[in-house]
Design a protein around this nucleic acid. Sequence first.
DNA 1: CTTGACTCTGTACCGCGGTACAGGGTCTAC
DNA 2: GTAGACCCTGTACCGCGGTACAGAGTCAAG
Lengths: 139, 139
Amino acid sequence: MRTGEVAAEAGVNVQTLRYYERRGLLPEPARRESGYRVYGPDAVRRVRFIKRAQELGFALSEADTLLVLAAGGPDSCDAARGLAEEKIRELDRRIADLQAMRDSLLRLVETCARPPRERECPLLHAIDEGASDGVVDAA
Amino acid sequence: MRTGEVAAEAGVNVQTLRYYERRGLLPEPARRESGYRVYGPDAVRRVRFIKRAQELGFALSEADTLLVLAAGGPDSCDAARGLAEEKIRELDRRIADLQAMRDSLLRLVETCARPPRERECPLLHAIDEGASDGVVDAA
DNA sequence: CTTGACTCTGTACCGCGGTACAGGGTCTAC
DNA sequence: GTAGACCCTGTACCGCGGTACAGAGTCAAG
């Protein structure tokens, strides 16, 4: 298969393939006389694996690790599981962070229910106040 | 106040102040003969406001808007509220995305409870399968 | 009057995951 | 044999929010 075919099948840009190759995620394919890349049939599968890993929240470097593990024996399974569990914990942390932002913001918006005092917006005032002593999210 | 003093008080890097100035978040301060910046007393407050807005999930460009609104009259209050509400919706979307990743990943990890069949890791196999037809998160 | 801490400008770089463009060569169907 | 689609390399750029460094000037205390 040629570059364009692999890209189309995998649903990515041609440049992305070259990028993955540079990153070491895709092995360097064989070449024709002309220099054109010739991919084996596994290439599409490999790119799709990477894309799937990304959807699950893994970075490219982690996708790389998963690919190595996928090529390994059954011992790799534990390692893969550990990686996935760590990623779940990471996602939990990020979710908690965003949730905290959301909640703080919601409380601020609720200050809007109170009428502006002395021509001052309670919400903006609250941000300003919070900036001094970290009332809302003193992390 | 000099640059270093403002930076220390606001808890940011000196370079960050210059960066904010370039971005238009901080007004250009007065200068001494020597070229040294001389900040008014509001500078620290302004930087803290920006930092607080960031903690709430606002980008610098949005923090800029909030600062403009904070300088405006009571009409700005509605605009600020709209911005905050939109940001809450955005946070909700991001949280939902991460939650979906988390849930998919958790389901994959649960496949590990099943013993490897034919020396293949169920988790890695599932990522591979998912890559073909988007079983888990066909978004 | 010197020393060390501070500040100035301009520019480049970081991670992340690509995307775009220039300036060429190649392949294939007509 | 040629037009148009494809491919090659190298390099630069995107957003985001800064950080780092070089090379120079300044300020205040001792």
